[in-house]
């Protein structure tokens, strides 16, 4: 796929220092990433692995210690990039004394949108996230799930090309989670690029095209989800119409018994197993880095 690179990090590192400039922690070590237009990219990793730091660096909320973070080809600290992106923070950091309409109107103004456009977008987004019934209530009265929805709505107010979602499904009930995932896929179908971080591996597995797994600030795995989850050296056969007897000689006798081979492939593991294996491996052999692929 030769589509446009939307997000790029080159040797991106972040060291947190204390007031006196002494190093406290290396949060991110020489991260190289490329995220292309139209894909859903997942950042995975245990707590403290550098996921949120990466997102903050891409948003310009933090400045890199070394390396570069580029969004739409611009330096991440350039505010102009923000015109084309939307960001849903880990928790909905919104003004609790505003109601849903005021919130979206406020963020619309920050994009310098005229009143008519703001009104239209506000109504559309409130419909989209299903908060029409509570649009006049102050956000302090919202449940966590509702706050999450209005948070998503504000991230989409400018119809962004790139959406950064930090733990998008946290705090949502199963139905809300499903809706969020559907929405992410819908955004992809509209040609938008999504970068999400999550702990909830099943969610990532369901929606992401590619993932990066971070551990202790290092990139441990990077690639397409379907490729990564393929277990090499093993074969999985799914067959139908076989008798009890025939099942014992599967590979050699299927055709002889006029059975139909439905699929013959490598079996896949779950993302959860892959993730745990990587974390265990990383702890056993620190310093091993992922190779770039796509």
């Amino acid at each position: 796929m030769a589509s446009e690179v939307v997000v790029e990090t080159r040797n991106l590192s972040k060291v947190y220092r204390d007031f006196w400039g002494r190093q406290k922690v290396r949060a991110l070590k020489a991260l190289d990433l490329e995220i292309r237009q139209g894909e859903i990219f997942g950042l995975l990793g245990p707590n403290g692995s550098g996921k949120t730091t990466t997102i903050k660096l891409l948003l310009g909320l933090l400045f890199p210690t070394s390396g570069q973070a580029l969004v739409f080809g611009r330096d991440a600290t350039d505010v102009k990039k923000n015109e084309r992106l939307g960001y849903l923070p880990e928790e909905s950091y919104l003004y609790r004394f505003l109601n849903a309409e005021e919130t979206l109107d406020f963020y619309g103004r920050l994009f310098d949108m005229p009143a008519a456009v703001r009104k239209k977008r506000t109504n559309e987004l409130i419909d989209l996230v299903g908060l029409n019934w509570a649009k006049r209530r102050q956000l302090k009265e919202y449940s966590k799930g509702m706050a999450r929805r209005i948070g998503l709505a504000q991230a989409l107010i400018n119809d962004p090309e790139l959406i950064l979602l930090d733990e998008p499904t946290s705090g949502l009930d199963p139905i809300g989670t499903r809706e969020m995932k559907d929405l992410i896929l819908r955004l992809k179908s509209q040609g938008k690029t999504v970068l999400m971080s999550s702990h909830l591996l099943a969610d990532v597995q369901d929606v992401c095209d590619r993932i990066a797994i971070l551990h202790q600030g290092e990139l441990k795995e990077l690639g397409r989800v379907d490729t990564l989850l393929k277990v090499r050296g093993e074969t999985e056969i799914r067959a139908a119409g076989l008798s009890e007897l025939a099942q014992s000689e599967i590979r050699s006798v299927i055709e002889r018994h006029n059975g139909t081979v439905m699929s013959m492939d490598n079996p896949t593991t779950t993302l959860e197993e892959l993730f745990l294996a990587i974390v265990r491996d990383s702890e056993a052999r620190p310093g091993r880095r992922a190779k770039q692929d796509s």
């Binding site: 948003l59 909320l61 015109e83 923070p89 003004y95 310098d112």
Partner: peptide, 14 residues
């Protein structure tokens, strides 16, 4: 402190 600034500075606000 409340991190509400995150949603402001990630908009095209100078």
């Amino acid at each position: 402190k409340n991190k509400t600034i995150y949603t402001i500075v990630t908009k095209p606000v100078r």
